[in-house]
């Protein structure tokens, strides 16, 4: 598949990255080369093959017990105000 520069812009936006325009060409070329190498998968017969999302065989659950943790969020916060993490003005209302 061909990665267009608008695809790239869309993905950069989705991933909340900031890539200078001058570097985009390089990224585009490198990514295209990598995507082209994915053609190796097209040679496989994957009909009827189930995906393997994980090789873990565990089914671990946790008992419903609560406890208090020794963590002080204010010590790691970039900006702390009124017992919370401060974030700048939100323009986009929808999560």
């Amino acid at each position: 598949m061909t990665l267009t520069s608008s695809d790239l812009d869309h993905v950069i936006e989705l991933a909340r990255l900031d890539i200078p325009e001058t570097e985009k060409t390089l990224y585009l070329a490198q990514l295209q080369k990598i995507l082209d190498s994915m053609a190796a998968l097209d040679k496989l017969d994957l009909s009827g093959v189930e995906p393997t999302f994980s090789t873990s065989q565990s089914v671990n659950l946790r008992p419903d017990i609560d406890r208090v943790f020794d963590v002080t969020p204010s010590e790691i916060a970039p900006l702390w105000e009124e017992n919370g993490f401060q974030v700048p003005k939100i323009l986009d209302e929808e999560a």
Partner: peptide, 18 residues
């Protein structure tokens, strides 16, 4: 938001993220 590097001098959240 919660830890690590945060860009300075941004006007809004979208800018802060990017």
């Amino acid at each position: 938001v919660r830890y690590g590097h945060r860009a300075q001098g941004v006007e809004n959240l979208a800018q802060m993220y990017k």
